[in-house]
Design a binder for these strands. Structure first.
Lengths: 242, 242
DNA sequence: ACCTGAACACCGTTCAAGT
DNA sequence: ACCTGAACACCGTTCAAGT
């Protein structure tokens, strides 16, 4: 229904990444970039992505909002820095020791848990490139993992992309639903009734509402995640065998 | 490094969905909700998610910004309505005719293309529940598809979730990268050099930069998408065979 | 039933001016 | 080298008041 239009200025300012320019040489005292990022993450944990404003962050550091602009070019750069800290919490077990499949599986679970612990980062995945040192480190170890598995050339990157796509794609909507229901004025029962009502015309969807998301959401989501992960890894394994 | 804290008020107001309350009965003239949604989508196509404001939308409809609040409770509801229109463009071929695997594959490609055509919708996936009639229709047809394939009970939903997770997870960062580079002050070559520089310490990542994203991004992404999709469907197929 | 404008409580960012 | 406050150009949303 819509034409394919690519706006010249999506955000009316040119893109640039903190990671793609020379770092300001670390000078001595006053506030530090690390301190600012740490405070930003605190604020993000407490109030979510929408709760972080330069003004509030300044206040938390007992500084003027605009002082921060000496350490960081703009808010997006600050978010890039915070985002990379999240990547820093993901772990990739050594595939040489545990085998590529266990390594991949553990990484997938680690990624999911880390994102669930930092719900604000879910929105950033679709907004910021992951070019920080922590993100690159994870990518590097993943590539090694899939090399050990036996992939070669571009397939290594394709396998990388496939695994992360699956984990992110499973986890991002999970978080959306979590925050929505947590902020909801209704309890789980009311919620189910309303959804059932909305889905009244779709018998196949209705059918799933009773088993699904509502009974023990947490447990079912784990099952679902493992189901997809197993399928995914089976599929990758089959490719290696062929 | 951070505690698991769930803020009471992520956005400081309770969640509710347009789809979960009785629709205002359609009265006659003046502006209509459809008209507003149509104009909103135009604006979204032209200027992206950040470019849509109630004020600009009002102006485009030669109305006061606040008139819109008679048709829609808030901006998020408006976005839900626009978001569901996107789902309306996704197609699921009849699995009885083409078989579940071709049906799934065609749906996956359709989803990807639709999101690529509406980059603004990528951000909404992680923010709004997909409870509109179009989203439900797609979900319903997907469920039927996986039933035809032979899945039963919760596995039907798990297969659904797995497929959508893969497609969204692959496409969302793709869009993030697209918009970033389109808005960038640098061309592809400069970009590659800067990324290479950022990744200097990670030999395995470096290794991939030459084949990868830069040579013919479009074509490589298709290859990558098909690689993961095939793996995914192979994995699901294996489960059916077992 | 529909629309308006003024007003409230916010934003990110720039920039001249201070120390 | 670092920090400030004022100012600019925006936001979403409420609400009394109009027709």
């Amino acid at each position: 229904m819509c034409e394919l239009i690519y706006p010249e200025d999506m955000s009316s300012k040119a893109f640039s990444s903190v990671w793609l320019r020379e770092p300001r040489k670390a000078t001595s005292p006053g506030r530090s970039r690390e301190e600012i990022v740490r405070a930003a993450i605190e604020l993000l944990q407490e109030e979510g992505l929408a709760g972080l404003s330069m003004r509030k962050l300044g206040a938390r550091l007992s500084a003027g909002a605009t002082s921060l602009y000496w350490y960081v070019a703009n808010k997006d750069e600050l978010l890039e820095l915070a985002y990379d800290e999240v990547w820093g919490e993901m772990t990739v077990p050594d595939p040489e020791e545990v085998g590529w499949r266990d390594s991949a599986s553990a990484l997938a679970h680690s990624m999911r848990q880390v994102i669930l612990r930092h719900p604000w980062s879910a929105d950033l995945i679709g907004r910021l490139p992951a070019l920080g040192p922590n993100a690159l480190r994870v990518t590097d170890r993943m590539r090694r993992m899939f090399k050990v598995a036996g992939f070669e050339g571009p397939d290594i990157d394709f396998a990388n992309a496939t695994l992360t796509a699956y984990v992110f794609g499973m986890t991002i909507p999970e978080i959306a639903w979590n925050t929505a229901t947590r902020n909801s004025a209704y309890d789980a029962d009311q919620m189910r009734d309303m959804v059932r009502n909305a889905a009244a015309e779709f018998p196949d969807v209705l059918e799933s509402l009773d088993l699904d998301i509502y009974t023990d959401p947490q447990a079912i989501r784990e099952l679902c995640f493992d189901f997809g992960l197993t399928s995914m890894l089976d599929g990758l394994g089959r490719r290696l065998a062929a």
